[in-house]
Amino acid sequence: MAHVAARAGVSGQTVSRVVNASPRVDPATRARVEAAMAELGYRPHRAARALRTGRTQTLGLVVSTLASVGNSRMLQAVADAAALRGYALTVVTLGADADVATAFERLAEQGVDGAIVLNEATERVREADLPAAGLRLVVVDAPQDDRFGPMPSSSPVPPFSPVPPFSPVPPFSPVPPFSIVETDHAAGARSAVEHLLALGHQTVHHLAGPAGSFAAAERERGWRETLAEAGAAAPPLVRGDWTSASGFAAASALLDGGATAVFAANDQMALGLLRAVAESGRAVPGDVSVVGFDDVADAADYRPPLTTVRQDFDTLGGRAVAVLVEGIEAGATVAFETVPTHLVVRGSTAPAPSPGR
């Protein structure tokens, strides 16, 4: 760093500010320092920085499984956002029977500065003792139960008042001991159901995600509430496990129930449903309209191209990392943010078939 400062004609403190992306450096000076760094082959030494700052510039990620498309997309988004901020990433997968407390212990042993907990794993945070003081958490798609009181629903909302990290939380406190960043799943489901009802379908069947999933529960809630507000009866739901195979297996119950419109809780299950409808001799969207959720990269290439609710994984992962890093570097604040969804209309939905067709 001293060599860089000498080459650029600045102080060591200025070099430090450039390395740490401080805004307190004018653009011309920053460019001169970065040029000197490039000429000298300078790279920050992570271990030395950890000794000096007490931080390892490493984040943890806790996830139940990486087999699902949503979780793998979130891993990519979090890894990209962490790298942009100069942080490394350590991943712990829980598996079917793993204890989230054990995952926190493993991350603490590796000296991570904070952790992000994804999707299905967030339910286990409620069941576990909170991690040791100093390990800040951001949970993605966390259930908001009565233990923590009602949470605001607007998107986005200002951070809550600062609280010490992981201090005891009395019953019905409005502030949980960790930050929450979530997709507005219920609003996404609403847009899907409203789209199908507007096409003249009398009701909308639901191919739901697995029990115990916060995202699946919120999408189911949006489906039920929208049908109720429209005065439409809610058919018995059929549940899958996020895989296309489960969507294929669930199709017979939906088709036997007379479904002309189905909202599937994710695109993989919708893909299995499309195959099953075709094999039954029916057509999508002529006989059955299908809407998915996520807008995976291949959704536009399904046959027919899938109408779906786009979940912004890049923004969701980016905001989770931003909230966590800002807490680590600027002090402990507890925040709640919601990332909106967007309905993408393609070729898998059409007006309801005429009676008797």
Rank of each mutant, 00 (worst) to 15 (best):
G60P: 02
D294Y: 01
A186E: 14
A250C: 10
V344E: 08
P351I: 14
A8E: 02
V238W: 02
Q311T: 06
A5P: 05
T93G: 06
T315I: 08
A101C: 05
R303Y: 15
A350H: 08
V100K: 00
S173P: 04
A322W: 15
A264H: 03
G149H: 06
L343G: 01
F166I: 06
R7I: 03
S244N: 12
L107I: 04
R282M: 12
P131M: 11
F148K: 05
P168V: 04
P236Q: 09
V291L: 08
P353N: 07
G54I: 07
R319M: 14
L137P: 00
D146L: 11
P236A: 10
S246Y: 03
P23G: 10
V140E: 01
A96C: 05
T226I: 03
L274D: 00
M151T: 11
R357K: 11
A77D: 00
V125R: 00
P156K: 07
A320L: 08
T53C: 14
V4Y: 03
F160R: 13
E326L: 09
A299Q: 00
I180N: 02
E39K: 06
D294M: 04
E194P: 06
T102G: 11
A251F: 11
Q202H: 13
A215N: 13
S68P: 04
G231R: 08
V204T: 01
P165M: 08
V140Q: 00
S179A: 09
P355K: 13
E326Q: 15
L40A: 06
T226V: 03
G200M: 04
G240L: 02
R30D: 08
R43I: 12
G292S: 03
E34K: 03
A103W: 00
V291R: 01
V296F: 04
R17G: 07
T29L: 14
V288C: 05
R124Q: 15
D97Q: 10
S252G: 07
V339M: 05
P355D: 12
P159D: 15
S354V: 14
V181I: 14
Y302A: 10
H45I: 10
Q144W: 07
E279T: 12
T203V: 10
V117Q: 01
V25S: 05
G258E: 04
E39C: 05
D298C: 10
D298A: 14
V33M: 11
F172Q: 15
A47G: 14
T122K: 06
A108Y: 14
S16L: 04
F104G: 01
A38D: 12
E279D: 15
P164S: 11
P236E: 14
G200N: 02
A28W: 13
E120A: 13
A234N: 09
E194V: 12
D294C: 03
G12K: 13
L61D: 02
A79W: 12
V321F: 10
V69Y: 14
L89P: 02
A278P: 06
E123I: 08
D301A: 13
S179L: 09
E39A: 15
T29I: 15
G317W: 00
D26T: 09
A132E: 14
P355G: 09
T122C: 08
R49W: 03
E279A: 14
M151K: 14
A115I: 07
S289N: 07
A81N: 01
G331V: 10
A265E: 04
L324D: 01
L274M: 07
R24A: 11
V193Y: 00
A249K: 09
V296Q: 09
F263D: 02
